[in-house]
Nucleic acid binder design. Structure first.
Lengths: 235, 235
DNA sequence: ATGTTTATCTCGATA
DNA sequence: TATCGAGGTAAACAT
């Protein structure tokens, strides 16, 4: 990993064209050749970047050579090309404030907990939170267009398809609608009703769900985990 | 901006919990207090981070103090807390390989070109590229569930709703379908047909569009811009 | 390799 | 301030 702090100007051409005027910034060149251009603010997104796989070609000029080019006195130029897409990033360095390099090796990686997969597992384990008498048929119930998160049966034995999202938005309702359409063609299952379950559901998604006859349920991750932990402790 | 390269371990609790085991990484502290943890690969997104607004509290131990804590001999600990959400990031530094700081100032910002809004403007200006006799009714034609990109009329005076995407995917077809359903309830407009226009349209989106009776048109950004420039030059 | 879905999404526009 | 839609979405996961 090479770290450069420098006054620089950046041009990107690819799916769009973008330009960063001359200013001091942090430039990171990673081991795979990818490049990040960061300012001293904003959030984790770089101002500009090139993703791997890509090739970095460096052109250098002496200060004397640069001085001859009065209008554009850069001393170093990086041309980073993405092999497949043809995207191109050009960084021109004007004044280098720092330039260092380190060998970091491959990272052992991140351990995560609390994402949608966990929500699904928790809800499957505690399916009766959706209504008394609910029973799990199976998680990831396959259909021709992909698996439904959970298929269950309610107290009356009627099939219920459940779509789980961390954030309930309109797309999720559309997705569940497509699943329901397919599932209801199966005479062994029909009629199948839908439940849209999420930690938070946007108003537009609620309206669309209501229009499609789909119920909405708000999930409380911590409460579900609490129930689950309590269950586990019983054994 | 402070740059630290160090062997470190990271823990995050917030919308999820995550842990990074001990390994050498790049740590960036920006002027607004935000923190990024980067590995030497897998670009763009940090392994872990804290977005502003947040507060950074640093605890340091002398090497002697650290040595006394045999199991966990960190010399410096960062506690980064997000004020609103209660998210918390803890970084423990074990061996610092580099530690530098720079004043970069506020970035002048990115100049972009070629996004969807531009495509929409270009197509509105050159609506006849969709068919001879086409005329623009208006851009961003409002409906109860949001504005349609373009409403036009064809040579026969029939209404046409146009959805524009940079990349034509299944979501865009769903969106246009919803608009068409609503627009066709308006007796002053009905029947309204749909055109799905994008720089590239995925096969699945094409299939769905065909199934819904929606035409697909591939847009050539450079050609449209060429036409537009030519038009402009005529005046 | 390709398609699909998620995301501590980020970011900007808008009501 | 909240909400909504787009993104050079990126990245993970399944096919």
């Amino acid at each position: 990993m090479r770290l450069v702090v420098a006054r620089c100007a950046v041009d990107y051409t690819g799916r769009l064209t973008a330009h960063l005027p001359l200013a001091p910034r942090l430039l990171i060149v990673k081991a795979d050749g990818s490049v990040l251009v960061h300012s001293d603010g904003g959030s984790y997104k770089p101002l500009n970047w090139m993703s791997p796989p890509c090739r970095l070609r460096t052109t250098t000029r002496t200060p004397e050579e640069a001085a001859l080019d009065e209008d554009d006195a850069w001393t170093e130029q990086w041309d980073v090309a993405h092999d497949k897409s043809g995207d191109h990033l050009r960084v021109r360095l004007y004044k280098v404030l720092e330039d260092s390099a380190h060998e970091l090796g491959v990272d052992p990686g991140l351990v995560k907990d609390g994402v949608e997969a966990h929500l699904q597992a928790l809800l499957a384990d505690n399916i009766e939170t959706l209504g008394s008498g609910f029973s799990l048929v199976r998680r990831e119930y396959g259909t021709a267009i992909g698996p439904v998160d959970i298929l269950a049966r309610d107290a009356d034995g009627a099939a219920v398809a459940i779509e789980i999202k961390r954030r309930g938005e309109i797309d999720g309702v559309e997705q569940l609608t497509r699943y329901l359409e397919l599932l209801n063609r199966d005479p062994l299952l029909a009629p199948v009703r839908g439940i849209f379950a999420a930690q938070a559901i946007k108003p537009q998604a609620r309206v669309l769900a209501a229009d499609r006859g789909i119920s909405c349920v708000t999930l409380d991750y911590d409460a579900l985990r609490g129930i689950d932990d309590a269950d586990t402790r019983l054994f």
